[in-house]
């Protein structure tokens, strides 16, 4: 069973609709006491990094999510939800993140090295490049286009957390992760077949986990 973390910052509806289409069982909750019963968690998110972190702290979800990830349980951060997994962001002045993955979130420059301007946000369909084609989350998929909407992107020197990237005037971390903690910068629930298949793969990770729990 997947638990979707409700902290008032996400489009819970489209994520949950996508899970329904895939036949993946889920529930939505905000209390750690309820979320802990899940086999895997989804951290959605649209909006400001700083606001999101202060709500997570207020609802005591931040420490819960950190220890969930530390215990090696499946966690998927989507869009802002992925950015929150990193150390911090320069959005609205610097703000601390969850420190689960190494890297920092910075605004797209809006200007190339050659001095020409480009549009921010990075909005629309862009192609994924698979840095770790054998990663479980990419199982059975072929690289294609997915739907992005974001003005800030992760910068990291740890190449090992880059599972897939995209190109928008710079290398854009698109799928990141360590262990069973996965982040997707784009919206898998809005990315056609490929997006649904990536969500399905996460669902399978969660199901495997659920079966293990059943054995205990």
């Amino acid at each position: 069973m997947i638990g979707i973390i409700d902290y008032g910052m996400g489009n819970l509806h489209s994520v949950s609709k996508a899970l329904e289409r895939l036949g993946l069982a889920y529930f939505i909750a905000e209390e750690p006491e309820k979320l802990i019963k899940a086999d895997g968690l989804i951290l959605p998110g649209v909006g400001s990094f700083r606001d999101a972190m202060s709500i997570l702290r207020e609802k005591r979800q931040d420490g819960f999510i950190q220890s969930w990830s530390n215990d090696g349980r499946p966690l998927l951060g989507i869009c802002l939800g992925m950015q929150l997994l990193f150390e911090g962001s320069e959005e609205n002045g610097d703000a601390e993140g969850l420190h689960i993955l190494p890297g920092y979130v910075r605004r797209f420059n809006g200007r190339t090295q050659e001095g020409s301007t480009y549009k921010v946000p990075h909005m629309g369909w862009n192609k994924l490049h698979y840095n770790q084609p054998d990663h479980t989350i990419l199982n059975g998929t072929e690289s294609g286009h997915v739907y992005f909407v974001h003005s800030y992107a992760v910068e990291t020197s740890s190449k090992d957390v880059l599972i897939a990237t995209s190109d928008y005037h710079q290398e854009v971390p698109a799928i990141t992760g360590k262990g069973l903690t996965i982040g997707m910068q784009f919206h898998p629930e809005k990315s056609g077949e490929l997006g649904l298949n990536l969500l399905r793969n996460f669902g399978e990770l969660v199901n495997e986990r659920g079966q293990k729990n059943g054995e205990f």
Partner: peptide, 8 residues
Amino acid sequence: VAGTLAIP
């Protein structure tokens, strides 16, 4: 529409 569509 939201229940059936996988694009924005």
